[in-house]
Design a protein around this nucleic acid. Structure first.
Lengths: 234, 234
DNA sequence: TCTTGTTGGATTGTCGACAATCTGTTTGTC
DNA sequence: GACAAACAGATTGTCGACAATCCAACAAGA
């Protein structure tokens, strides 16, 4: 008998599709931070009743990209400079841990997948598809987590990634100019293939820092705009 | 004007109360791992309609203590030895990070709160209230996270804590004998008051390991029972 | 006997309507 | 005109009923 692995069949509940739609809208910045989600309007647009929509929203609230205030509404989370700093500093720690766990698990299939994902990033970069560029870069980064073989760590990283993706998307959107940017991941990939774990950990940390500077600049801009808006309100 | 800090008013949605009730039932082990939650029955018992109950369940699914299979049901998560190992090893890393962040933030109010929580543990221990003992011990442990001033880290720890609380409760429940256990936190508290951060980090790691052994023994018991049950099913 | 269809009951997913709550505006009073 | 009470509209929270799906038991055919 031919050996054939079937993947699990897709979730076919409206709820799951709504979650995917909303998440995508938020993570790509189509829904802006602080924006209120009107249940009636969205449910009409999606041709769905409010029940599955509300359940989907609860999921995203727990996922950390929406916040809900009883009887007031559900909103896209606000993004502050501190949030970005917090997320990044935790990401550093987790990265180091993930590399440590994944290191002995590396093998041919790991390297193959590494190349595959790296290629995807390069392709998105060439195509000037910034949204996809962010997505693929994060997926490349996520490989060590998938191979770390620690389900709680993976889950944690996925939550964190949601926010990072959102932050990057907002950043890109703010300077509404596609940034080709040559490939920053060459060294990262090479080190993950090498034999010096410490070096890989160190690079992951530094690489993060370089991206970080840009994001922080954006965050500071946000802060400024927010305080000005508060001033205007007086 | 007198300075007075009001705490936020309680959530008054049924949903929030249901979440609290269910969470408590799960974390204290009243709902067993793998058990199915029948929506109709629970909603009738709580005198509530299925809508807020289902929303509450979605939250707990995202919180990681329930799992949902479309059209099949929502279940309390299964607990495997690997889950416990994974949670603990991540907890070590996070603890180290939290201590590092919290260290410069320590001050009188930190020490006071530390003592307060330590006292709560001792009291629960004296009263042989194992459920409360677990709760208070985790709260003591959580102090460094609250003072680390990193919202993402805190959030992450709270998710992790849910599981740890559940694991401990199951463990206690399995050997249905209240364990007085003398105070294990004396050293931990002392080190957090001291001036040697490294020592505190080291102790946190070792302290975790000692509790860990017990939990692992329990987990292995679980595995064994599970495999036997699987055998019987053939 | 094994496999494959069918059927009934139970349970989850979804819907539309109603109740509770909030917010901004209007009205009334001083 | 300033302030508070009452109202109106919009929005969220909750409910009961219906539709879709699953599962176990049973029946039919090879």
């Amino acid at each position: 008998m031919a050996k054939l692995d079937f993947s699990p069949i897709a979730d076919t509940t409206r709820r799951a599709e709504i979650v995917a739609l909303l998440r995508r809208a938020i993570l790509t910045g189509q829904l802006e931070p602080g924006q209120k989600l009107n249940e009636l309007r969205i449910s009409e647009q999606m041709r769905v009743s409010r029940a599955p929509l509300r359940e989907a929203m609860r999921e995203l609230v727990q996922e950390g990209i929406l916040t809900s205030i009883p009887y007031a509404g559900t909103f896209v989370i606000d993004v502050t400079a501190k949030d970005i700093i917090d997320a990044y500093s935790l990401n550093k720690v987790l990265d180091e841990f993930a590399i440590e766990l994944a290191w002995p698990q590396r093998g041919q299939s790991f390297f193959d997948e590494l190349d595959r994902r790296h290629e995807a990033v390069k392709q998105a970069t060439r195509a000037l598809d910034t949204t996809r560029q962010i997505e693929t870069a994060l997926q490349l980064h996520g490989l060590i987590y998938e191979w770390a073989d620690n389900s709680v760590l993976l889950e944690t990283w996925q939550r964190l990634t949601s926010r990072l993706q959102m932050y990057f998307a907002l950043h890109q959107r703010a300077r509404n100019e596609p940034v080709p940017a040559e490939d920053l991941h060459e060294t990262y990939v090479a080190l993950l293939k090498g034999s010096d774990m410490r070096a890989a950990q160190r690079h992951a940390r530094e690489h993060i820092d370089s991206d970080f500077e840009e994001l922080l600049a954006y965050a500071r801009g946000l802060e400024e705009r927010a305080s000005k808006a508060a001033e205007r309100r007086r």
